[in-house]
Design a protein around this nucleic acid. Sequence first.
DNA 1: GTGAAAGCGCTAACAC
DNA 2: GTGTTAGCGCTTTCAC
Lengths: 345, 345
Amino acid sequence: MAQRSGPDYRHKLTLRDVSEASGVSEMTVSRVLRNSGDVSEKTRAKVLEVARTLGYVPNKIAGALASNRVNLVGVIIPSLSNMVFPEVLMGISRVLDETPLQPVVGVTGYEPEKEEQVIFEMLSWRPSGLIVAGLEHTDAAKAMMRNAGVPIVEIMDVDGEPVDACVGISHERAGRETAREILARGYRKIGFLGTKMPLDHRARKRFEGFSSVLKDEGLSIVAEEYYSGGSALAKGREMTQAILAKAPDLDFLYFSNDMIGAGGLLYCLEIGIDVPGQLGLAGFNGVDLIDGLPRRLATLDSCRAEIGARAAELIAAAETTPKDASPQRIEISPIFAPGDTVRPK
Amino acid sequence: MAQRSGPDYRHKLTLRDVSEASGVSEMTVSRVLRNSGDVSEKTRAKVLEVARTLGYVPNKIAGALASNRVNLVGVIIPSLSNMVFPEVLMGISRVLDETPLQPVVGVTGYEPEKEEQVIFEMLSWRPSGLIVAGLEHTDAAKAMMRNAGVPIVEIMDVDGEPVDACVGISHERAGRETAREILARGYRKIGFLGTKMPLDHRARKRFEGFSSVLKDEGLSIVAEEYYSGGSALAKGREMTQAILAKAPDLDFLYFSNDMIGAGGLLYCLEIGIDVPGQLGLAGFNGVDLIDGLPRRLATLDSCRAEIGARAAELIAAAETTPKDASPQRIEISPIFAPGDTVRPK
DNA sequence: GTGAAAGCGCTAACAC
DNA sequence: GTGTTAGCGCTTTCAC
């Protein structure tokens, strides 16, 4: 079999190799490869040609150490199995793609100790900034971030004290707003369905906001149902069946996310419940799956991609600007989308 | 407000700072921090104590340069918006979590040039290995990978020539197997619904395998429908409506993924089509959403998490073992899951 | 068990 | 426009 000729990357080539092969100093080669400083067109062309034929791949590790510039942004999220976080990543990527910065992802599994560890690992790469989901962290993690000397953006949530900047929605308010919309539409016997996750602070805050509005009206949640693991759609079905068995006179189900809400919706329609007349439904997140359901599920958008993008912009801006800007606190305020699963007001 | 006392990370601390503060040489501090070599328990305790109080965070950039060990694994995937790829990442993370290796993700948007660029960027970090989705790459990308001097694992697909190792399923075979199952169940007028993506080689291979079996039986695909962007569930609905309008006598719809299949299923049930009697449906991927649908959609599992895990194992193994092992070619063979949307044989 | 010296492959800073 | 020098913060190697 004929061996295609081409660059040979096998020997770990260094700048020195390119320098020798082109008869130009290492420094000039470095300048060409970074498009920095003035280099004559002739030299530049020669160097590029030699680098390409040799198959030279610069060593960013060495470059980063020498220049003290790493151009990495640490992104720390609790999970990848929940589509919400990949969507945040997309927002981040979209913005960072226009810059020299590159995201590096760490996953915590919703565990504070694991998060602390991931933050430590990230910081040991000396990144240009950190984007971390949530406002709740161990004291050690907060201390590390506070003293990291790089911009830290906590995302998804604004209910609390950020270490530095934050971008997100208020989940407390999201819960309250949903409750108000539901009550305004005349529903009174309300059930709640959520995840069995004490460390999902955002879900908890929505629940608290939601409950507090009910309480103000002299109401309370009539029944609850929780799940963990498995297909959220299937769990939504099962939980809906279970909660309606326990409390058949419910007139509303508030789901802590759209996927279980979708499962609940499919179940209700199948067994012939009149949605939204007899039973209203609402979820949370605003996932695009909703568009394909038999009815549009009522929901509140969690603005994932936008949050990711705004956070990335803050980090990118800190790279360019003198770092005297005061920490930002950006709250995005989504509005309730009633869809077809709540009665009109 | 009282300032909580604690480690001060502000001044970029170095080994030297820890060394001076503990009265131990930099070398010994380094040994303690890496658990390498023999250090007396007394010294070790003192160093750890000092490092912690100071809030020292080691600089991995410098460590990597000096030791020539980076412990990063580049993972290159086409997209994050398709849940398939985050699931691959989960399989990879699960395995790498047990090792010192850490995944770094790059996204190509299904563009070969972007992929080439991402591969170059990844290699410039001198990673311990690369996991790349697919077997199709530009010549330059293949050359870089061939000469990278680290293990390269191409994943998701085994229909072609890998640069080094590969782990995946045969999409050609997946298409053929699905076609055989469909024909064996008596369906004959078959429509195909897919994505408008010439660069999704795996979808193309499934289509080709599928078509070839039909052809062997003197049949062919009666109607086709394609989409791009938007909510896959909603697109599945729309396309199903459209294809049935064009070809009302179809008795089977083969969807190139489960999400559009699910949309199609919901649509068919809503308008009262007898599934699977009058019309059979099948998708591809085996997503867990299927469990929550009114009927279980027939599908073929693409084994995403397992593929990720196996690929990560190959990289991890290459780290420990002398690198003489011949390149592996691991084919996973999923079996057709008929669910409830095809007739019994 | 501990330390001293010599780099890893680049780039900042300055000289020419 | 180009070259020289001196590190970046660690780890390797070898001496003690």
